[in-house]
Each structure stands twice: as structure tokens, then as C-alpha cells.
Amino acid sequence: MAVVVDFVVREWNVWGQGMDCHENEREWSEHQTCIQAKKALIPVRVSKAVQRRLSSLARAVFNAAGACIDSNNTVPIVFSSAHGEVNKSLEMLKNMQKGEEVSPTVFSLSVHNAISGLFSIAYDYHQEITVIAPGQEGIAPAFIEAVGLLQEHHTEVLIVFYDEPLSDFYPSLPFSVNAPAICALALRISLSGSGLSLRFCRSPEHRDDGEHALQIFSFLKFLVAEDKSLVLGNHRHSWEWHKK
């Protein structure tokens, strides 16, 4: 039986290199070629102790997600990233190769849930937090996880997608894994209420849309464009999102 789920995007926010866009300023689609080097600012509420541990990717996540959480911190968060801070892991491995000892700080910040951990400390966030590494499945697993949380009993769930370009060290070809720039996209969703109503279901199509990092951009374009539907897949399962 085909599973069809309806949900509402209550609010969304994105931070990407060279763009800073909110749902009320849907100009990004016209300026998507303007991506350029720029570092996200550190939100003012982040303490000095946490600030010094924020990578460019973490800053992007904080900017996107920080603007979408509610004031009482009641919403569970599903973070989704294909590679997380893998560039930090690479830096650590290169230092080990040189015979240097592993820095405890670099190690602690290289794990897949490092950014979510920093976020929970910085925002004093005690709700359920999940961090997904979706492999080749793209952005769909985060939606499945978030919808599962909504079905359980949560009124709203925040999904945060993020990835950064991989180091040249990793041979990415022939796979479409690499993002053109750092991007973090946060969506606060619920089963009902005002906002952008979407229908989410499996697609029978065989697709080649690239992996998670590229799918974030595809979904962002879908949010800001007039397109009624989006199909994404990466050789395995494909998924559809329809604007209702």
C-alpha cells in the first residue's frame, strides 16, 4: 500500500554561502548564481565558550535553525546531513599521519552529532534531537523521521538539512555527492495549521538527482519556485512532494 503523508511547513529559513533568505524574501531563486564566499555570523545568544567551537558549517546551521525554533524550545529537532563535519575528520587523520596526537577538541567536533550537541548547549535545548546520516537516500529519511515524531504526539518538528562541499581529497566522481556551497535549510513542520501544505509519498520513478547535499538545493528551489511538485531520487528510492 502506498504511504501518503500530508504535512504543513509552518516556517522555514535557510542560510547558504552568499545568500541569506527567509520565506518572506523569496528572491533567492532569481539570484542563485550569486553564491560566493561568506561566513555566517554567530547568533548573539551563543556564549563565548561555544562560539570558539563553531565551524562555518555549524554557524550556517545555527543561523538557519535558530530563527525557526519557538521561544519555549518545545519542538523536537531532526538534523540531517550526508557528511557532517567530515572535513574536520580528514584534518584529524592528516595530523595523525604526520605523527601528531589527536586533539580532543577536534575529535569531539568531528563526530556526526557534533553540531547538534553544540546547538543544544548554545540554545539550552532539551528536546529530543535526532541526527540522520542518510547515505544515498537524500533528504527523504529526515521527513520520514519527522513525520513519525508528529504521528507519535509532537505538535511540531523542526528539520534541519545541512552539508558543505567535500574536500578534494575525496574522489566524488562518478557520484553526485558534492554541494556547490555550504547550505543549511530549516523547516518547522506540523500535521495541520497555517503554512505551506505538502503531500509526501513514494515515487515509482527511477531518478538520478544526486545525494543529500544537492537535494537540499533542489528542495529549496521547490520552496521558492512556482513548481507544484518535486520528485527526488538517487538510483534507489524516489520520493515526491506536492504543493496542495
Partner: peptide, 17 residues
């Protein structure tokens, strides 16, 4: 100073080095 346990480990390593 507001340091934490990771800082303690980092400091221990720096002192050893």
C-alpha cells in the same frame, strides 16, 4: 574562566607536548 572537560583534555595534551 568557564572552561569544560574537553578543554581540560586539550590543556593536558598541550602541557604534555
Amino acid at each position: 574562566l568557564g572552561l569544560d572537560s574537553i578543554d581540560a583534555l586539550e590543556l593536558g595534551l598541550a602541557i604534555r607536548k
